[in-house]
């Protein structure tokens, strides 16, 4: 994984400070040839305890920050770490290619699959090129094109969701952002191959759902999935964007809350300190989930899969 200089999130600072001190002590002990093993081990234990404690008590808004972390692995990272022979497909065949969504065919442990996901950048330049992972209509249409090809060839579809939302721009509106998303929802609901969606980072509203109507919808432990960003929700309902913490609490956008509400099907654990601290382990854990999914669904017939998928979404909602 890229060892870029990590700027710790505010709540990560006590942990990073402790690890910095440990590193200092190790250097000192080496240079001065003093045995500090027991002190260092004690500090390591303390750091571990502290990290565990902090990560067990994260506030929803802190989880939102982790989900948006610039070094959090994205679709391309996971493709590189989990799949082989990825053949990227570009363009919607109507208007353009949208770098905010990538997709194509690949092998997962020798099995054919289609992989589609939002793509942000790990730095500003890449983020601008990928429009911060906010797709235009052609992104959704490209995704649908790839899904239809997957259906044609009988490849299961795996989507990785990580977007602040669909792009609210002039061109996007002119070219039918709403229609593109709506079409995907409709077509994914009856796509005749198994479909797995994993929210890896930010599950931003309709822009996320546009590639996430699937048989199983899983979330990484510190991913979020929400109808609206906490900031926008705060500014609308509380009339104060600074109320994002209250909004994040109220929206119930974390993986454990959404699992309780049965709006997602499972949670994929993240490495200690979050996926941004260890891309490989995050990828391994996702790989396990893909494995379980492919094994379960390869045995089922299409009608059965489609009926279950329909009923799953049919039954979502709370009313009396």
């Amino acid at each position: 994984m890229a060892e870029k200089k990590k700027i710790p999130l505010e709540f990560e600072k006590p942990i990073t400070e402790l690890y910095d001190k440990i590193a200092e002590l190790e250097t000192l002990s080496r240079e001065q040839n003093i045995d500090m093993t027991s002190e260092i081990n004690a500090m390591k234990n303390r750091a571990l305890e502290l990290e565990t404690k902090i990560f067990q008590n994260l506030l929803p808004m802190q989880i939102v920050q982790i989900s948006r972390h610039q070094l959090r692995p994205g679709t391309l990272d996971y493709i590189q770490l989990l799949f082989t022979d990825f053949v990227e497909l570009k363009g919607d065949r109507v208007f353009a290619d949208d770098p905010a969504i990538i997709g194509g065919f690949a092998f997962y442990q020798g099995q054919n699959v289609a992989v589609i996901g939002h793509q942000k950048g790990h730095d500003t330049k890449e983020n601008i090129r990928r429009n911060f992972g906010m797709p235009n209509p052609e992104g959704y249409r490209k995704a649908l094109r790839i899904m239809r090809l997957a259906a044609k060839f009988g490849f299961p579809v795996i989507t990785l969701v990580d977007t602040p939302g669909a792009y609210p721009g002039l061109g996007a509106e002119e070219r039918g952002q709403a229609e593109a998303i709506a079409r995907n929802l409709q077509e994914m609901s009856r796509l005749p191959v198994p479909a797995l969606s994993i929210v890896t980072g930010e599950g931003g509203s309709g822009g996320a759902l546009g590639i996430a109507v699937a048989d199983k919808v899983l979330m990484l432990e510190y991913a979020v999935y929400s109808v609206i960003s906490p900031e926008a929700c705060g500014s609308i309902l509380w009339r104060d964007a600074a109320q994002s913490e209250a909004a994040a609490q109220a929206l119930k956008l974390t993986a454990p809350d959404l699992l309780k509400l049965k709006l997602i099907d499972g949670i994929i654990p993240e490495p200690r300190g979050g996926a941004h601290n260890n891309h490989e382990t995050a990828a391994q854990n996702i790989g396990q989930a893909i494995d379980v999914f492919l094994r379960e669904y390869s045995r089922q017939n299409t009608d059965e899969i489609l009926a279950k998928r329909y009923n799953k979404f049919r039954n979502m909602g709370f009313f009396k």
Binding site: A182, I228, I236, L251, L253, L263, M316, F318
Partner: peptide, 12 residues
């Protein structure tokens, strides 16, 4: 918004 993600799922 007051129904959180469940409202988004009404789209699907």
């Amino acid at each position: 918004m007051q129904e959180g993600l469940a409202s988004l799922m009404q789209m699907a």
